[in-house]
Amino acid sequence: MGWVTTISVWIIPMFIALILVTGTIKKVPTYETFVEGAKDGIQMSFSIIPYLVGMLVAITVFRESGAMEYMFTKLRPFLELVGIPAEIMPLALIRPLSGTGALGMTSDLIATHGPDSFIGRLASTMQGSTDTTFYVLTVYFGAVGIKKMGDALKVGLIADVIGIAASIIIVSIIFL
């Protein structure tokens, strides 16, 4: 554990030092260049707003109306038939939609079942192994103004299904 945390803490500062030292050696006007590049950041953040507002409002309405909950209960018997633990399903379904929602659910599952239980380990693996597809899609494409997403959403969602299935299979093999 020690080295893992050490790497995580050191990597960013070291990377910054590398950039600044290389820039100075190569005689780049570092500060001016920084300001020049940084300006883009402001504009970019603002251009994401419309995309993210549209997506998040739709997802929040869907969740708060109870539709998401209903979907879980309907899917439950079918999923149990395939051997997927029912407790984990809401997390699997919310993972591509909402990052904060998934994180909250993972904490909740770990708190209820214990971090070292099967469900706790599975939730941890699932949380770490895929990202919030809708968020990534909205932010990355929104920032550079891509409106026609092509097959991106399909590819992202299929990758999520693969990641979730892989988590269940791998955790079952290793910890059961």
Binding site: I16, G37, A38, D40
Partner: peptide, 22 residues
Amino acid sequence: ICFGLISVLTFWLGLMKIAEKS
């Protein structure tokens, strides 16, 4: 979320510009 991104984006895009030029 977007407001939170301003700080991160501004800092990293500035820094990466140096990395690009060097």
